[in-house]
């Protein structure tokens, strides 16, 4: 007989026991481990997916921030460019203005210098002319000329009106003595004639002394206190010089008015 029923029953029991043993020590631990590993992998995948999503969100946020920074930088650059342009324009305008002022000042200085040179030249010319005139007059001055000039002087004194004579009184002049200057010394007769004539014209005239004054070039001069009456070449020449020297100032005033 090929089948031993006792062995069959024993093998049945053995097989059931083996099922129980393997279920306890093999299948359950393996299935648990596999399930745990799958769960862990799923968790890791979910974590990685979440991390990827977070990273994408972070990347998006950084891109947004970078774009904001870019825009802000562009705005700042534009602002700085405009400010620099304005600053450049202002500096350029200031420099142009300064240059213009400097140019004006230089022009004015040049004009002033030219004017001064012209004035100096004129003054020098006038001075030289006057020196020449003085030299000529000095060379030509003689007693006869002085006499002629005295005659003219007397005529001018006689032509004075009362109002013109008033300052020559003693009280008005504020001096006790007067001075009569001439280039050439007067003799006694001439001095007496002068005194008589002065007394006849200015009754209140104080005592008059006679002085010789070669600087008058040619002519005579009467001074009482601060008042002075003269007729001489020097004064003429000085008046002429003053008028000549006043000409540039008058011309400048006319130019400014124009």
């Amino acid at each position: 007989m090929l089948i031993d029923w006792f062995t069959v029953v024993a093998q049945l029991v053995n097989f059931l026991v083996l099922i129980w043993l393997l279920r306890r020590y093999l299948y359950r631990p393996v299935l648990r481990a596999m399930a745990a590993r799958e769960a862990r992998i799923a968790q890791e995948i979910a974590t990685a997916r979440q991390a990827t999503l977070d990273a994408q969100a972070e990347q998006l946020r950084w891109q947004q921030k970078q774009e904001d920074w870019q825009r802000e930088r562009d705005a700042l650059l534009q602002q700085a460019r405009v400010a620099a342009e304005n600053e450049r324009a202002a500096i350029l305008a200031a420099a142009q203005q300064a240059a213009q002022q400097l140019q004006d000042m230089q022009h004015a200085s040049l004009v002033s210098e030219l004017q001064r040179l012209q004035d100096t030249l004129k003054r020098q010319t006038c001075h030289e002319v006057l020196q020449i005139a003085q030299q000529l007059v000095s060379d030509l001055a003689q007693q006869d000329l002085q006499s002629a000039m005295l005659a003219v002087f007397w005529r001018r004194l006689r032509q004075m009106n009362a109002e013109e004579k008033q300052p020559w009184s003693t009280e008005q002049a504020g001096a006790q003595t007067g001075v009569f200057r001439s280039v050439f010394a007067l003799d006694a007769v001439q001095q007496q004639q002068v005194l008589d004539l002065l007394k006849s014209i200015f009754p209140d005239l104080p005592v008059v002394h006679f002085e010789q004054a070669p600087d008058l070039l040619c002519g005579i001069e009467l001074q009482v206190g601060t008042h002075r009456l003269a007729w001489n070449i020097r004064d003429y020449l000085h008046d002429f010089e003053a008028r000549v020297l006043a000409l540039p100032a008058q011309m400048a005033a006319l130019r400014e008015q124009a």
């Binding site: 090929l2 089948i3 031993d4 062995t7 069959v8 093998q11 049945l12 097989f15 059931l16």
Partner: peptide, 15 residues
């Protein structure tokens, strides 16, 4: 091998 025994294979088949 126990599977060479008809008793064992019969037991498995009965299972």
């Amino acid at each position: 091998p126990p599977t060479a025994s008809l008793s064992t294979t019969a037991a498995l088949a009965i299972c």
